[in-house]
Amino acid sequence: MRHHRLVSALLVLILLAGAAMPAAAAWEPTKPIEFVVPAGTGGGADQMARLIAGISDKHKLSPRPLIVVNKAGGAGAEGFLDVKGKKGDAHTIIITLSNLFTTPLHTGVPFSWKDLTPVARLALDQFILWVNAETPYMTAKDYIAAVKENAGKPSQKKMGGTGSAQEDQIITIQIQQAIDGTKFTYVPFKGGGEVCVNLVGKHVDSTVNNPIECASHWKAKRVRPLAVFDTERIPVAEWKDIPTVKEALGVDIHYLMLRGIFGPPNMPKEAVDWYVGFLKKVTETPEWKKYMDEGALKPAFASGDEYAKWVEENEKLHRELMAKGGLLKK
């Protein structure tokens, strides 16, 4: 008896699956979309991916669900290689952060953005120089003076950051190269949240965290933002009093991190178009806008050639920055 029910259940399942086959001409996902995150759970990229999956569910933007899969191994190389291997697959996308550029450049793992199909740029993430709120450094100038004073001594100022040879260290090296006499001890941690907590706990002297990673500690008056690594101030209410590095220190150091989406190599054109439209709708929801504001992210939607060109320029920029910092694979 139970056996029969099982068989019929199986039949129903098959029929359902058949019915779900698309008839329309325009491409639509026909099975769940694997959304790869080349970073661990809880980080900025992971949060954004899960937010997109959530928004898609809530507003019914996609006929099939997005399944977030973390593939963080080898500084994200695991995720990128996985997507690189899925040639022509229309049901896999990957969210990128700067490790799209830094990981292959530093480790020599064979992948590049050129292996993937650019889909869309969603936003750009800011970087801010933070110190502990109990320190006497009210401005970036104060702090840099202290950095210079302690350079080369056992009390040399410690800069905390995420990983090694990634964006945080690149920015740290940029400061050292732009301002004579500055020298930091760079302490690598596993994730951005951990970095900021180590700043609150005074285990490091400063960090270059993304705004969202330190925002709540700032509200609790435990950390103090000194300068934004951008050419203009962040235009969101509570953030706009923070000066840019140029205003604060007179040198221009700017760095923005990509939050974008790529597909596997040779992703069908129709599928790319669908994802662009889908992501566009995602970025127009109130939840997305709220997240952008709270995290002081720069909305920067772009797709097609505009996106590809931007990525190409950015890879060149990373190569230059990392070459200058001695971070390229030897």
Binding site: G40, G42, D46, Q47, G193, K290, E294
Partner: peptide
């Protein structure tokens, strides 16, 4: 824990800012 990390993501989506001010 990793689980807590995902929950934190949830807080943000529900419009809460995780952290000392909560």
């Amino acid at each position: 824990s990793p689980t807590a990390a995902v929950m934190l993501g949830g807080l943000i989506i529900w419009g809460l800012q995780p952290g000392p001010m909560l």
